[in-house]
Design a protein around this nucleic acid. Structure first.
Lengths: 150, 150
DNA sequence: CTACAATATTTGTATATACAAATGTATTCG
DNA sequence: CGAATACATTTGTATATACAAATATTGTAG
């Protein structure tokens, strides 16, 4: 559906505005679907991503700033996000011995089990939501987004 | 910059995940820049969009549900958003005579003046932020996003 | 070794958003 | 008419986010 029809504007948008509005709208549309998917597991996307980052560390714990720089959306408050994961039992936090300003955050067995359950669900979701795009389409979209940010 | 480098993952992402992550990341990147731009005018993007919608009405007032269906990101709370615009003096709200469940919201002269000042700034911003994309690129991006939502 | 700057995280506060329930009004149907 | 239902908006509440300030720790220059 054309973006002009979605936001019900009579006048055609200038090309650059149309692309930006479409980008914002589509991101919202995707996020809605992701949230619906994750709601069943009582976790938010940022929380899920932190778990994935920690698992990617292969048992080497990460500190807060490492997590922050790897997040898709830059978090203003990673402390409280980690707090929530701790309350759920998915991660643990210990103060770094070598530098007591730092904290070391690592995934628990419970967190790993959770990921083992939810990761395939998300992978399946990603495939479903992009099913209308061919491999070339996906590559092209990826390149255009990179180019936009250049 | 490749999305894998941005989120510092060692493994290459599957195509569909890469596109989705890139979409979310790029939208965040754009929103950050929009917020910086609008901050000087002490207004948020949803608020700005409501003003544009009301101006598009050409003095015909809109009710809340009309505004909601035209918003890019579906608002869960348009009442309080309009409250803020009223406090700023940019819009006014009167109860609809024919159907007192409805309210009629319209832009004030002050709101029109504000838009006259800020709209060119935003148009200029939109052109700047898309300057690396050709007309074909923008059309292509637009089509790919439409296709994704199909 | 002490004061000062730099680093890493945490906390406070204001604002934003999501979702559900409540309010007030209009319509319909016996 | 009066009860039930539908409609349009508002309010309550819990959670999320942005940003600034505070805290705690380490490194460094004199």
């Amino acid at each position: 559906m054309k973006i002009e029809d979605i936001i019900k504007t009579e006048v055609e948008l200038p090309l650059s505005r149309r692309a930006i509005v479409n980008l914002l709208y589509t991101e919202n549309w995707v996020m809605d679907k992701i949230n619906i998917e994750l709601k069943a597991y009582d976790i938010s996307l940022p929380q899920f991503n932190v778990l994935r980052i920690l698992q990617g560390q292969k048992d080497k714990p990460a500190n807060l700033s490492t997590i922050q720089e790897r997040m898709v959306s830059k978090m203003s408050n990673t402390t409280r996000l980690v707090d929530k994961l701790i309350r759920k039992g998915y991660v643990k936090r210990i103060i770094c011995k070598s530098n007591r300003r730092k904290v070391e955050i690592s995934i628990t067995e419970e967190g790993k089990d959770f990921l083992k359950k939810v990761s395939p669900v998300m992978t399946d979701f990603e495939n479903r939501i992009t099913r209308n795009l061919s491999r070339e389409d996906l590559n092209l979209l990826n390149e255009l987004l990179n180019k936009l940010r250049t």
